[in-house]
Amino acid sequence: MSSTRPNQLFRNISSKIAAIPMIVTALFVFVGGTIWTVVYSFTNSGLLPRLQWVGLDQYERLWATRKWLISIENLAIYGLCMLVLVFVIGFILAALIDQKIRFEDTIRTVILYPYALSFVVTGLVWQWMLNPEFGVQKVVRGWGWESFTFDPLYSADIAIYGVLIAGIWQGSGLVMVLMLAGLRGIDQDVWKASRVDGIPTWKAYIFVIIPMMRPVFVTTLVIVVTGIVKIYDLIVAQTGGGPGISTEVPAKYVYDMMFQANNLGQGFAASTMMLVTVALIVIPWAILEFGGSKHRD
């Protein structure tokens, strides 16, 4: 009968059917896989997973391992510097390109180009660039500055900053493009109003334009942070974790433990720690961002 309300289950049934594969993937692969990993991090799995409980032993070992501690420290240095620098550089580049310059398309393409390269290629290119035998140091010395030294990848204390350079070179183009899209979305009348008000350009950027670009900043932040946390291939290609263990990162630790050292339990414990760290950052942010959304204007 047409007067009865149709069953809610069958509304938009075709879209629901189409969504099932993704729902299944999400449930079994992501959620299931995560739970499985967390559970097996409490076992002494070696080459193959086995359910032999050892309590928190794997975690105690993990936090007593120097390689893991250095990995965490490296990720913190790389992540913090990357986040700040890539935003600052990306935004400044976008603001400069937004000044109605000539050859904008060309410049934009050139700056975005590194992003089209894989981390492996980026790592290799910068390994060569930073090689004292035929990289930047060689070129500058060739110009006559004989004492010039620039070989970050060969000093354990600063090798991670050599990786950082490559990361920024690769990532700032994407941030620039996203920021540029945000800037282009700003109503030109707002700029005019700020000029009539006599606001200097830099002040207009900081107090008016950047607050207006909040959604773009959030999107960019998510993209950049996920890129930072999963950093692995750049390290493998550029330094292989060296010199020594000075550029190790958590994702590489996990991989090494699981597939090189045949110590699945230790790898699971490390990846669980990574998950916990990300969750500690994301959950409070998500509550702040979306939890109170009903009360915001």
Binding site: D187, D189, K192, A193, S194, V196, V208, P211, M212
Partner: peptide, 13 residues
């Protein structure tokens, strides 16, 4: 002083 079609107010203030 100028008034614009799209108001051009500073939305975060």
């Amino acid at each position: 002083g100028m008034v614009f079609q799209s108001y051009a107010l500073y939305p975060q203030m």
